[in-house]
Design a binder for these strands. Structure first.
Lengths: 202, 202
DNA sequence: AGTGATAGATAGTAATCAATTACTATCTTT
DNA sequence: AAAGATAGTAATTGATTACTATCTATCACT
């Protein structure tokens, strides 16, 4: 008798599914990741997916949840260990780049969701993630201004937008070059510029 | 007898097609703009499109060509009129934001193309556009350093990446808010931060 | 008026997609 | 060890896609 692989629990299967999607997003356009492709990557038939998720959209929803939890947890951990607001910003920057380097599919999924016209739950979760991220940055920036570490006249929102934009610029470059390693390499230089934009002159 | 609209020339039809695509991209995910939707927007049947274009991909190709020509022409015109490299950078920034404000579908198309896995001609054209853009920025930045207007130790590539990233950050915010007007309003503040990152201290 | 070329409409094809169904294999509980 | 619940398969559904073949209407030019 052929030995068959043991069944995974529902929770494990959901986890594996999310990872398969993020994996695939690193290689191909998130917009045309099919349920068939996800199942194939997991070594399972396409129909099996619908035993754990009622629809494809709830799969994407689980992906966004996964991303939100992990990314924000990393950012929080990184900033908590920092000595100063500016140090926290740098730690957050590094942690974010590190996270993306490990999961290159993440920014692609995020942007892909934001592009969608329909108001799917997954899209709203992506918006919420970025909003929460922005709040955290806003707090650090405000604190940095209070301590005199950042320019007093700094526009908080613009500074937060630039922070995310700086990362996005790097992501775009790596997307064009098709080279994820470039991300880690050019991150310090990029943050140095950002720092110069917001740091108070001594 | 019913009066029928006059036929357009092949060239005109191609132009109208491109504009229809960019129009649609402002409203929906570029990834699922169908040839049927394009034709409908033009007031033409779906099959008629394939009289002027051999495939959907050549349509996207024409779109990227249209974007490249117009955007770079605007940038060149804006920078040519500027008195100094830093002034030219600001003029380019404003011109770019203005262009996107008029055609909100453009950055979405661009990013959508860059996301694609296949090495389509349209994707390569998107890459070429950004590359050429980067070269122009690089020249301005180098000149700015020579004139002592920008920090002498500035990393040219990082500065060019941050320039594009700054714009992308704004685009992303407007994408999240679903509000294009926000772009023009927050552009000056964003460039002020960029300027601070690259400008030489007096 | 008549001719040839072009533009467009209509009605398809084959492929692909998400989702569903009917069924089977495995695990868990008692 | 039996029974019920859970996890899986294989085949199929209906919708949608890019693309094509065929036919008709209109144009420019004599």
């Amino acid at each position: 008798m052929m030995s068959r692989p043991a069944y995974l629990s529902a929770e494990e299967r959901r986890e594996v599914t999310v990872e398969a999607v993020i994996d695939l997003a690193a290689e191909q356009n998130p917009a045309d990741i099919t349920t068939g492709a996800i199942a194939k990557r997991m070594g399972v038939t396409q129909g099996a997916l619908f035993r754990h998720f009622p629809s494809k959209d709830t799969i994407l929803q689980a992906v966004m949840e996964w991303v939100s939890e992990r990314l924000l947890a990393r950012i929080d951990k990184a900033t908590a260990a920092a000595a100063s607001p500016l140090g926290a910003l740098e730690a957050a920057f590094t942690a974010h780049i590190e996270f993306i380097s490990e999961h290159p599919g993440v920014p692609r999924m995020l942007f892909g969701e934001l592009q969608r016209a329909e108001r799917t739950i997954a899209k709203r979760m992506a918006q919420t993630l970025i909003q929460r991220y922005g709040e955290r940055l806003g707090r650090l920036i405000a604190e940095g201004k209070e301590r005199g570490e950042l320019v007093a006249t700094l526009d908080d929102k613009a500074a937060a937008t630039l922070f995310i934009g700086t990362i996005q610029g790097l992501v775009m470059q790596s997307l064009i070059a098709g080279d994820v390693k470039r991300l880690r390499a050019s991150a310090p230089g990029a943050f140095a510029l950002y720092r110069r934009a917001v740091e108070a002159v001594k």
